[in-house]
Amino acid sequence: MEIHRNITDKLLVVGVWVTAIAVTCLFAWILSDILSNGLKNLSWTFLIESPHDAGRSGGIASVLVSTCLILIICLVVALPLGFGTAVLLAEYTSEDKLFGRIIRCNLDVLAGVPSIVFGLFGNAFFCIYLGMGFSILSGGLTLACMVLPILIRSTEAGFRSVSDDYRRAAAGLGMGRARTLVYILLPVAAPGLAVGIVLGIGRAIAETAALLFTSGYVDRMPGSVLDSGRSISIHIYDLSMNVPGGESNAYTTALVLVILLVVINWTSTWVTNRFSGGNLLY
């Protein structure tokens, strides 16, 4: 019996190390594959040249511009909504009030809704019902709905991490709640908001399925936000599935996307650690 337990103990040690090494190797394999194949044509000109011949040659300039425009629209709409909701949830409703619970449950489900369903909704609502057609505007608005839960969750965590002493001190000085919010809480909770924005951008930039039927496929340089524009992730999808011979440019585009996301991930970790000792993200 004693020996038997000893063996289980040892086996588990081996088990966790083997798993960890295997997972690391798997991820190293994926990363090195994209890195080695993508670096071949990654250059400055790749970033500033527009795609030619359905993307087989040329760069991704117009794709990057469309992606940026989609992101900007997404943030302009999602930020005020997300920020306001987070303030209400953190400062004005307690954990067990019905109103707060309903909103929170709603947002949890929204966070789990598959991106293709957002795509269907965006197509029916923004493109057709509101008559925006296949456009960067529709895509950005669809993404705004998608990043809302992430934005709210981190911002709310930021406000909750502010010590109650601040609120009591402000009340003691006779400050109203609106003034307390703007002058006391906002500066302290700002890192939470920053993390939310960074994570939201990360989710938005990685999105493909929700944009297929909202912002569309067109790879020309967009003239306005009512034009259809191709995002960077759709560019990868299109090059690898629909364009024979597009593989090498797909690799390079994938590398650009991965680099962007790693930078975004590091920024959010840096902000979290720098300003709050690491308890913002949960």
Partner: peptide, 19 residues
């Protein structure tokens, strides 16, 4: 490592799977 890979977009995983 796990955090970085949680953020890699599905289209990149799909592309790797494809090739």
């Amino acid at each position: 490592i796990i955090e970085v890979f949680a953020g890699i977009p599905s289209v990149v995983y799909g592309f790797w799977g494809l090739v």
